[in-house]
Nucleic acid binder design. Structure first.
Ligand SMILES: [Mn+2]
Ligand SMILES: [Mn+2]
Ligand SMILES: [Mn+2]
Ligand SMILES: [Mn+2]
Lengths: 220, 220
DNA sequence: AATAAAATTTAGACAAATCTAAAAATATTA
DNA sequence: TAATATTTTTAGATTTGTCTAAATTTTATT
């Protein structure tokens, strides 16, 4: 089965929302898609007809197994292309999302498989998000956000939660990138902000909000 | 200015047709686009409104300068992506057209420029067709078709005219690819077919129709 | 439980890109 | 040049994805 660009965008968005909330509701999807609730309802009917969705009027909805697989196909392509853009074309990691949002809809299966091989079958995209394999299997890592790790312990940045341009811009300013060694020197009880040390940089302070969106794992 | 996928496909097709015939007519464009004459007329009105086209009802049409530049942008992307697919992803040259037909519509200017650099600013695509630069300038080469070169002279294959899957498949069978050294041993007056010698291969015979679509230039 | 507020769906409209069938213009030919 | 054939355009319909405004359903609050 193959889907339109619009269908694919909806499917992927529903997938991400249901990872967080289980059932998804119309308004939150409309907000994510930057469209109107009425348009969402229209698309839900279509996706239900195509048997990708469990959906009862007024009761919320979520992807079924076929829907999840379809979503993971799009996610896989999105993240592989992001990896290509950063690793091969030297884009900054905060500039690739919009382009991958288009590239993820190119339909050739063989293209995706060859791209995957060309890139060396990467497991994580430039934002640290896992790249599903062609069967939809997702690699896992143990990671915690910066707010929860013990003081002085040196850890490695593995992914970022909030991936808005604003956030990525801020991380660039702090010289925080994937793989960056980092440690927490002090936790301020007043507002939850952290004094951190990035390798080769002076200590600096980040807000609790930033800390919660920086995920790290043990140095290998 | 940016255009829809459909507009870009029409613009590109008109460009290629007018290279051959000057003025283009509705039916031939409809045939090329695999659509109906009525649909072509609709699109012509749209492109005229967008000032890409000289068009008088019943009198034929052609792209103006703005239209040609728009077409060359699409051609440039198409051929750069084809080069990428063959040189980086190891696709066979006869498998890349349909995929490039999608990739050519990805809109980022920066992407195209970075791709161009990543590929080493190639001048010709895998079928030997010139790749316009970002200003729409097209590299030229002196080339003739195989039917017109002197017997025994060793020349190099530089491009192919007919690029149908059938033709490319046939050339693969003859071990004719871009850059292949080749010479004509004998010309048969009966049907215009040629006995040719491909380097490292036994002599063989190709039809006049094939010969006319194989372009060659002097060995450098 | 009744009322108000919020969330969701329906009804009806629109733009883009396509189609078929019919009308109009142009070209061919007897 | 008049009849015929071909080409092109128009008229009107259809599909997809979107919208606004109104109606309906669910949830929250007196
Ligand atoms: Mn997308
Ligand atoms: Mn990403
Ligand atoms: Mn195309
Ligand atoms: Mn080509």
């Amino acid at each position: 089965m193959s889907y339109t660009v619009s269908e694919e965008n909806y499917i992927k968005r529903i997938y991400h929302l249901q990872q967080e909330t289980g059932l998804v509701n119309t308004n939150s999807l409309a907000a994510e898609m930057q469209t109107r609730a009425a348009s969402v309802t229209d698309m839900l009917k279509k996706l239900k007809t195509k048997k990708l969705l469990q959906y009862e009027k007024y009761k919320g909805f979520k992807l079924n197994e076929a829907g999840k697989k379809a979503a993971l196909d799009v996610v896989r392509k999105h993240r592989l292309w992001e990896y290509f853009l950063v690793e091969k074309l030297q884009f900054d990691w905060d500039k690739v999302h919009a382009i991958a949002e288009e590239l993820e809809h190119i339909s050739s299966e063989e293209l995706v498989q060859r791209l995957d091989n060309f890139l060396g079958n990467p497991s994580f995209d430039p934002h640290g998000d896992p790249i599903p394999d062609r069967n939809g299997k997702i690699p896992v890592i143990n990671q915690q956000n910066l707010g929860t790790i013990p003081l002085k312990k040196i850890v490695t940045v593995s992914s970022v939660g909030n991936q808005s341009a604003e956030m990525l811009d801020m991380l660039k300013h702090y010289h925080i990138a994937l793989g960056t060694p980092i440690s927490v020197l002090k936790r301020f009880e007043f507002d939850g902000s952290l004094e951190i040390k990035v390798l080769h940089r002076n200590a600096c302070i980040i807000s609790e909000q930033v800390a919660k969106n920086v995920f790290v794992h043990d140095v290998q």
